[in-house]
């Protein structure tokens, strides 16, 4: 996955704001699948997801004269899509799920993220292990790992999107990563541990 390139993001965004269809098209095709996949972690309703993404893009087009510049389009889109998705899901579904104090819809990593089987057996085994390890994580941890490694966002951006503090994000990610690492304990060749006083 090629990650976000700030400079070209800014240029594309600016020409999109000037009404350039080609620039808009670039944005659409570069990000559509990421947005779709992210929303699908929250709902199985594929038509709903498509509608929400379309609404987002139409709104962006209509309000392009009033939008601010951004050098990170993925982040910009993710923040708005999450707000829209939650608003719709909360309006739409009966609040029976309110057994949890958390108002947010649940994040299901397994709706889409599956082991990717290739020709290499060792690789396949590792993938399978990794995914089962991810599925053991807490919901927040899963989401943060997903946003960081699959969607290519950094801690600061993830914190903004989820509406939590930067420190919380860092801590949650740190714990998540060391949980994953523990699942791989037996896999790893041991090195010499050096304790620094």
């Amino acid at each position: 996955m090629k990650l976000i390139n700030k400079e070209s993001d800014l240029r594309i965004w600016q020409s999109f704001r000037k009404g350039d269809k080609a620039a808009f098209q670039k944005i659409y095709f570069n990000h559509y699948r990421f947005l779709y996949n992210y929303c699908r972690k929250y709902t199985n309703d594929t038509a709903l997801v498509e509608d929400i993404i379309q609404d987002l893009f139409v709104t962006l087009l209509e309000r392009k004269d009033f939008l601010s510049d951004t050098d990170n389009i993925r982040f910009y889109l993710f923040s708005s899509i999450r707000r829209r998705l939650f608003k719709t899901l909360n309006d739409r579904e009966f609040k029976v799920t309110d057994l949890f104090s958390n108002d947010n819809p649940a994040f299901h990593l397994d709706q889409g993220v599956e082991p990717n089987f290739g020709n290499d057996d060792e690789e396949n085994r590792f993938q399978k292990l990794l995914i089962s390890s991810l599925n053991n994580l807490g919901e927040r941890q899963k989401e943060m790992i997903y946003l960081k490694y699959y969607s290519g966002l950094n801690c600061k951006e993830i914190a903004d999107i989820l509406g939590v503090s930067y420190q919380t994000t860092r801590n949650t990610l740190c714990t998540a990563l060391s949980n994953i690492r523990k699942d791989f304990e037996d896999e790893m060749p041991k090195g010499k541990m050096v304790i620094i006083s």
Binding site: M1, G112, V113, F126, Q127, L130, R181
Partner: peptide
């Protein structure tokens, strides 16, 4: 002395980066 630790971390990071979301 950190080389082995780094290599192990690398394996996990690589694995996380190669995650595929197939929904779309």
């Amino acid at each position: 002395e950190t080389k082995t630790e780094a290599a192990n971390a690398r394996k996990i990071i690589k694995g996380l980066l190669s995650l595929k979301d197939k929904a779309a």
